[in-house]
Amino acid sequence: MMNIPAYLQPGDLIGITCPASKMDRPVAEFAAGVLSSWGYRVRIGNTAGMHYHNFSAPDEVRRGELQEMLDDPEIRAILFGRGGYGMVRIIDQLDFSRFCQYPKWLCGYSDITTLHLHVHARLGIPTLHSMMCSGITSLTVQDPYVESLRQVWRGGDIHYHFPAHPLNRQGTCRGMLIGGNLSLLTNLSGTAAAPDMARKILLIEDVGEYLYNIDRMMMNLKRAGWLEKLSGLLLGSFTASQETDTPFGQTAYEIILDKVKEYAFPVAFGFPAGHQPENYTLKLGVPYTLHTGEPCFLKEETQPAPYHDHHPALS
């Protein structure tokens, strides 16, 4: 049976920590003020505002603070400060025994993909692919994607409509949604956190990657057998993709579509998630229905039901 963290109630405690790259303290304090206005109590960890090379703090400090928040049964959600790099350096030293007794929502994206995949593959507990403190600013606080985090914390239904993309492969599928940042997913291939991809809907996004490297990473997932087992593929943003002096000849989306052309599952491009302002909250590790025709929608399935995949026939 799925061990789903409890949804938040007014007065619940939310922890903020920076387990990867550094972030200025006022960024965390502004986000904490927004969360307080939503009716929650907030505890900001010391790593928010610390600076140690590229990291917020040395490995043992970042790990220790995250461990404390994982262990604390009073904390009902952890909102990470930002991504960057660093989770992979501490993930294997974390003890999740107390977390399994008192599961809480782990909320973030980018480098937090390492934690999402570890928790899904090893523990089977859902997490949230969402904005972090760095995405809650004076310019975004009223935006619907910020509001989406509050609604999911409250237990609101996840049912997003989004425009159909010309490259979409149409169809309808059902499967457990997992994934996140493509670079991190590739790095996890072959590790103990590598997921079973059978009948999953895979979410991928990335930022600042050279196009040839996107091709290489997709080839890695293909050769590892991740793609052939999927129920569906959901593409978020591929922001600021880069070219070398010699053009690769395809866009990021075209590269990805080429790597899955031999499979029949539905593919949806342009879901508003990833390294961009429009970063809507998604519950990872639970079943969804994905429809890639006009209009496209992604809907969390709240009742257990058998899988009914409707894939287009390959020509």
Results as ranks from 00 to 15, higher is better:
54 N>H: 15
128 L>W: 02
37 S>G: 14
251 T>N: 07
196 D>L: 06
282 L>S: 00
248 F>E: 01
113 T>H: 07
297 F>V: 12
21 S>E: 14
166 P>R: 03
149 L>A: 08
47 T>D: 01
228 E>K: 15
171 G>L: 01
77 A>P: 14
11 G>Q: 05
297 F>I: 03
9 Q>D: 13
121 A>P: 09
120 H>C: 06
212 Y>S: 12
279 N>K: 15
182 L>I: 08
201 I>K: 03
86 G>Y: 03
223 R>T: 15
151 Q>P: 09
136 I>M: 03
286 V>R: 01
75 I>F: 04
53 H>E: 14
205 E>L: 15
256 I>Q: 05
45 G>P: 04
10 P>T: 05
305 A>S: 13
230 L>P: 08
151 Q>H: 14
257 L>Q: 07
280 Y>N: 02
180 G>P: 08
118 H>D: 11
247 P>S: 05
198 A>W: 13
25 R>M: 00
191 T>S: 13
219 M>I: 12
271 F>H: 06
187 N>S: 14
296 C>E: 00
266 P>M: 04
213 N>I: 11
236 G>H: 06
111 D>C: 12
65 E>V: 14
23 M>I: 13
14 I>P: 08
180 G>S: 04
104 K>D: 01
219 M>Q: 15
16 I>W: 07
6 A>V: 15
202 L>Q: 07
222 K>E: 14
6 A>S: 13
134 S>K: 09
151 Q>R: 15
188 L>Y: 01
242 Q>Y: 11
157 D>T: 11
228 E>P: 03
181 N>P: 07
91 I>S: 05
301 E>D: 01
315 S>D: 11
61 V>L: 07
233 L>V: 03
122 R>N: 09
285 G>A: 04
125 I>S: 01
215 D>G: 09
253 Y>S: 10
172 T>M: 09
295 P>H: 05
95 D>P: 08
290 L>M: 01
101 Q>P: 12
85 Y>G: 08
126 P>G: 02
279 N>H: 06
311 H>Q: 05
172 T>D: 05
128 L>K: 00
194 A>P: 11
8 L>P: 08
306 P>L: 00
205 E>S: 14
148 S>D: 04
49 G>C: 04
93 Q>H: 13
191 T>L: 06
23 M>W: 03
163 P>I: 05
233 L>E: 02
64 G>Q: 04
51 H>N: 15
226 W>L: 04
52 Y>P: 14
24 D>Q: 11
188 L>K: 03
56 S>C: 11
137 T>N: 10
243 E>H: 06
224 A>H: 12
313 A>Q: 02
232 G>S: 04
127 T>N: 05
133 C>W: 00
66 L>V: 10
200 K>A: 02
56 S>D: 07
271 F>E: 00
59 D>W: 13
65 E>I: 05
1 M>K: 08
165 H>R: 00
119 V>H: 02
134 S>G: 10
300 E>M: 08
88 V>Y: 14
207 V>E: 10
235 L>N: 02
116 H>T: 03
279 N>I: 15
89 R>H: 15
286 V>G: 01
240 A>V: 10
264 A>W: 00
247 P>K: 06
7 Y>A: 02
110 S>R: 00
254 E>A: 10
256 I>Y: 04
294 E>L: 13
131 M>Y: 10
